[in-house]
Write a protein that binds this DNA or RNA. Structure first.
Length: 570
RNA sequence: GCGCCUGUAGCUCAACUGGAUAGAGCAUCGGCCUUCUAAGCCGGCGGUUGAAGGUUCGAGUCCUUCCAGGCGUGCCA
């Protein structure tokens, strides 16, 4: 079903055409203030400006041509040419009675590249944002009807694997998984060996050459290591409720066989230049120091390839094999220049044609409460598994404090949902591109724009339904929107599709979070003002139960799109 | 040096891409529980949107110049 905003846009656009403003955007927004109505159309002012006409007069003509008699109770002109629209309660109620299904007019094939940890080490907090945000966006795009192809572009190739393989062989960790239980410790120990023992370092370098040359024993050991490392990742994904599995892994090494060919194709496209022994692509749009050309190096002077080469091969794979219309890559903002270059080279070389949209979706760093990069007290990286353990522990203590009579099993399942949900929501609710401050107390607070607040709102509604069922009350097909808080709640409920659409368009889950928070606030306001079980009449109770049911469904759907669990009791 | 990003209430963040009097939460102050979970609700306080110019009916948003911070910038990823 078309969203309220899209419906208004359609109507206003028709009116524009009738009064000679064809092509002008209607600019539909939520009303800035309740007294202005529900939505407003701001397009008249821009259009009048371009025509050199009086905006109020133009607005008058538009309103005369605008037919909203079936949906609006009031349409008025205000200020320099705002058109304010108030929906008729009967229209809102009728819409609310229908299922709101998410859909998109032109479904696409969308590659979502996210998480993509380096398998040499254990997952740490640096991987959290990509994993969580990418997963939420993938879920949203899927829900809108797009075909989503998840790509976990894990780092499984490179010089440090020689070091790790030697150490695996030395410790026998490949046969017995226990020394690899903590990959982070294992990496540090191997690094120590590498730094302190020249013989070991030499063997490690030799092992890389053997590995890259395809030597069977080296490949076997490497594969074992990768399997163990991926199992670590999978455990984190499963605990986080992230929809990634082995099927989605398309590792860097998967492009190994395409790298020579990628270089040849660049050569054939005529974009390749040798510089200081390295193979480079120079594009006019990238300038370095003093305006000198800035290269994208695709082959080192020693013949080795770089991650630019791999990423170029990945662009080809995603266009030619995966047939993607759109590619979203979730990495931190430090790689912005890299992807700008890779995408530009891909266009220049014809790896990506005009039909495919290549979008780097950057995100900022996670900072500690002190505003500095988020580290352990000793300055080390924080393992993701440890972070999740701490979240659940903290949530568990809170749950117990609020509800001492709870069973251990219930405490545990609530703590899991609340703790994990809190971490994910804290990240998702902030603007993706800026850095954000990681704060346990803030994210686990039951007040404010947090996962626990939303989960609590949901649990209250579920509790209400347990009681209403006991009393034999049933939700009606349609709600009466008499009280102001009922009307505000209804408007918020009907806004769900347009918010999800926006999140899909610009990969901004924080808009969905903001929406769900407002929905929950409007629900609790309604809930305080409008008794349900003790309503004046059975009809009123049923009407309000319908609003409650719709709210519960919307909260659950919205949180599910964010990858956050709801709970029946708190 | 050059490039990108950021700068909004004491703190954490919004502001639907140029719209009306810049909004929430936390903190703080004050109300509301014999009634559906007070893990809640209602209200108050709090702002020269880093600074100064400019563009126009209108600027947190766009352009210029500064200031502060972060990141990047030919052979790591």
């Amino acid at each position: 079903m078309i969203s309220l905003r899209a419906l208004l846009a359609e109507r206003v656009t028709q009116a524009f055409e009738q009064v000679g403003l064809a092509g002008a955007p209607p600019v539909i927004q939520l009303a800035a203030k309740p007294e202005f109505g529900d939505y407003q159309a701001n397009g008249v002012m821009g259009a009048a400006k371009r025509l050199g006409e009086n905006p109020r007069a133009v607005a008058q003509r538009v309103v005369e041509a605008l037919d909203l008699s079936d949906i609006a109770s009031d349409v008025s002109i205000a200020g320099p040419g705002f058109i304010n629209v108030t929906f008729a309660p009967t229209f809102l109620a009728a819409r609310l009675a229908k299922d709101i299904s998410l859909s998109v007019s032109a479904p696409k094939r969308v590659v979502v590249d996210y998480s993509s940890p380096n398998l040499a080490k254990e997952m740490h907090v640096g991987h959290l944002r990509s994993t969580i945000i990418g997963d939420a966006v993938a879920r949203v795009l899927e829900a809108l009807g797009h075909t989503v192809i998840r790509q976990n572009h894990v780092g499984d190739w490179g010089t440090q694997f020689g070091m790790l393989l030697c150490y695996v062989e030395e410790t026998g960790a490949g046969d017995n998984a226990s020394p690899l239980a903590d990959l982070e410790d294992f990496y540090r120990a191997a690094k120590k060996r590498f730094d302190e023992d020249a013989d070991f370092a030499e063997r490690a370098r030799q092992r890389v050459v053997e590995l890259q040359g395809g030597e069977a024993e080296a490949r076997l050991q490497w594969q074992r290591f990768i399997d163990i490392s991926l199992a670590h990742c999978q455990a984190v994904y499963d605990r986080l409720g992230v929809k990634l599995d082995r099927e989605d892994v398309h590792a860097e090494s998967a492009y190994n066989d395409e790298l020579d060919n990628t270089l040849t194709l660049l050569q054939e496209a005529g974009v390749l230049t040798e510089s200081d022994g390295a193979q480079c692509v120079f594009l006019d749009e990238f300038k370095g120091k003093d305006g000198t050309p800035l290269p994208v190096i695709v082959q080192k002077s020693d013949g080795g390839y770089l991650y630019a080469t791999t990423d170029l091969a990945a662009v080809r794979y995603r266009q030619d094999t995966l047939k993607a219309d759109r590619v979203l890559v979730f990495t931190d903002t430090r790689q912005a220049l890299h992807f700008k270059q890779v995408f530009a080279v891909a266009r220049a070389a014809g790896f990506a044609d005009e039909s495919i949209s290549l979008e780097h979706m950057p995100f900022g760093a996670m900072l500690g409460a002190d505003g500095k990069p988020f580290k352990t007290r000793s300055g080390g990286v924080i393992r993701l598994a440890a972070l999740l353990d701490e979240a659940v522990e903290r949530a568990s203590a809170l749950v117990l404090a609020k509800n001492p009579e709870i069973t251990a099993a219930e405490q545990s399942s609530i703590a899991e949902a609340v703790g994990i949900g809190a971490i994910k929501y804290a990240d998702l609710s902030k603007n993706r591109t800026s850095d954000y401050v990681f704060d346990w107390d803030q994210m686990l607070s039951f007040d404010g724009n947090t996962a626990p607040y939303l989960q609590y709102a949901y649990a209250r509604i579920r509790s209400l339904f347990r009681r209403s069922e006991a009393k034999g009350l049933v939700a009606s097909d349609q709600s009466q929107l008499d009280a102001p808080s009922e009307r505000l709640l209804a408007l918020a409920l009907l806004r769900f599709p347009e918010v999800v659409e926006q999140v899909g368009a610009d990969a901004s889950p924080h808009h969905l979070c903001g929406y769900l928070f407002e929905l929950a606030q409007r629900f609790t306001s309604f809930y305080e003002a409008c008794p349900v079980l003790t309503a004046d009449t059975p009809e009123q109770a049923s009407s309000r139960l319908a609003l409650c049911a719709r709210t519960a469904n919307t909260l659950a759907s919205g949180l599910d799109l964010l990858g956050i669990d709801v709970i029946e009791r708190m």
